[in-house]
Amino acid sequence: MYHPAGAEALFRTFRNRSDEAWLDILLSSLRVPGIDGVPMPGFPSDDLQREIHGHAGEVSLHEAHVFFREVKSYCAYAGRPIAPHRTLLDFGCGWGRMLRLFMKDIEPENLFGADSTSRFLMEARRCNPSVNFLSCQLAPPSILASESLDYVISWSVFSHLDEFLSLRWIEEFARILKPGGLLLITTQSRRFIAFCAEMRLRRASGISLEHPWYEACANSFVDEELETARYEAGQFLHAASALPPHPQSHYGEAVIPRGYVVKKWGHLFRMIDFLDNPVRLPQVLLVLQKP
Rank of each mutant, 00 (worst) to 15 (best):
F102I: 02
M103S: 15
K104F: 01
K104H: 14
K104T: 12
D105A: 11
I106F: 09
E107K: 13
E109K: 03
E109I: 12
N110W: 06
N110H: 13
L111F: 03
F112I: 00
F112R: 11
F112D: 07
G113S: 08
G113K: 13
G113P: 10
G113Q: 09
A114F: 08
D115T: 05
S116Y: 14
T117P: 11
S118C: 05
F120N: 14
L121Q: 06
A124C: 07
R125A: 13
R126Y: 13
N128C: 12
N128E: 15
N128R: 10
P129K: 04
S130C: 15
S130R: 13
V131D: 10
F133E: 10
S135A: 15
S135K: 15
Q137P: 00
Q137N: 13
Q137L: 13
Q137T: 15
L138C: 03
L138A: 14
A139R: 15
P140A: 01
S142W: 02
L144E: 06
A145W: 03
S146W: 02
S146Y: 00
S148P: 01
L149M: 12
V152L: 04
V152A: 01
V152M: 05
S154Y: 12
W155Q: 14
W155V: 13
W155C: 13
S156P: 03
S156A: 15
S159E: 02
H160K: 01
H160Y: 05
D162P: 11
D162S: 10
E163D: 11
E163H: 07
F164N: 11
L165I: 00
L165N: 08
L167V: 01
L167R: 14
L167M: 14
R168E: 14
R168K: 15
R168G: 05
W169S: 04
W169L: 08
I170H: 08
E172G: 03
E172H: 06
F173Q: 01
F173I: 01
F173P: 03
R175V: 05
R175A: 07
R175D: 01
I176Y: 09
L177Q: 04
K178E: 06
P179C: 00
P179N: 04
G180F: 13
G180V: 11
G180C: 07
G181W: 07
G181L: 10
L182H: 12
L183R: 06
L184V: 07
I185S: 01
T186E: 02
Q188A: 12
S189T: 09
S189H: 12
R190Q: 11
R190W: 02
R191G: 15
R191Q: 13
I193E: 08
I193N: 05
A194F: 12
A194C: 09
F195L: 08
F195P: 00
C196W: 04
C196L: 11
A197I: 02
A197T: 14
E198G: 11
E198F: 12
M199S: 04
M199D: 01
R200G: 02
L201Y: 05
R202C: 11
R202F: 05
R203V: 01
S205K: 15
G206W: 02
G206L: 14
G206D: 06
I207C: 06
S208W: 07
S208Y: 03
S208M: 09
L209A: 02
E210Y: 03
P212C: 04
P212T: 02
P212A: 06
W213P: 05
Y214L: 09
E215A: 13
E215D: 08
E215P: 00
E215V: 09
A216Q: 10
A216I: 04
C217E: 12
C217W: 06
A218S: 15
